[in-house]
């Protein structure tokens, strides 16, 4: 009974982790995620596929680190994955907001520049038309 249950769980784990991996690959294929931001996702979904196929691996690692209850090793890996990916997000957001700021500043500077150029051109135009008027009247 017990053995049946564990193979059942293993089957579910394999299906879910493979589904997860395929989903990530599909999103990259459709350009919904950029390759450079998906490396961690791919890495950890492969890790999960590996551990769902190779059950002794988990026992081995748990034993090696000294975790009494092997499934807890899975939680450890999961937490690490989430942490790393969230940190990566913070890095990306910081970089983006920095670039965003520079862009906004550049736009502000350019708007002023453009306004001054426009004024200059208009002034020259009105001067020219003024000259023409003067010529025709004389």
């Amino acid at each position: 009974m017990n053995a049946v249950n564990t193979t059942q769980i293993q089957a579910i784990a394999i299906i879910i982790s493979i589904f997860f991996l395929l989903m990530i690959l599909y999103l990259i294929k459709n350009k919904r995620i950029k390759e450079e931001y998906s490396l961690l996702w791919i890495f950890f979904s492969i890790v999960f596929v590996v551990f769902s196929l190779w059950r002794e691996g988990l026992d081995y690692i748990a034993n090696y680190i000294g975790i009494a209850y092997p499934p807890a090793a899975l939680f450890l890996i999961l937490l690490m994955a989430i942490f790393l990916i969230l940190i990566e997000f913070s890095i990306i957001i910081s970089k983006l907001s920095d670039k965003n700021k520079t862009l906004a500043q550049e736009i502000g500077l350019m708007k002023l520049e453009m306004k001054m150029m426009k004024e200059k051109i208009e002034k020259r135009k009105s001067k020219q038309s003024g000259n023409q008027l003067a010529e025709t009247s004389s």
């Binding site: 906004a104 500043q105 502000g108 500077l109 002023l112």
Partner: peptide, 13 residues
């Protein structure tokens, strides 16, 4: 001279 920023950047920006 007036620079109008496109959105709020805060005092630093």
């Amino acid at each position: 001279f007036v620079i109008n920023l496109p959105y709020n950047l805060g005092i630093g920006g």
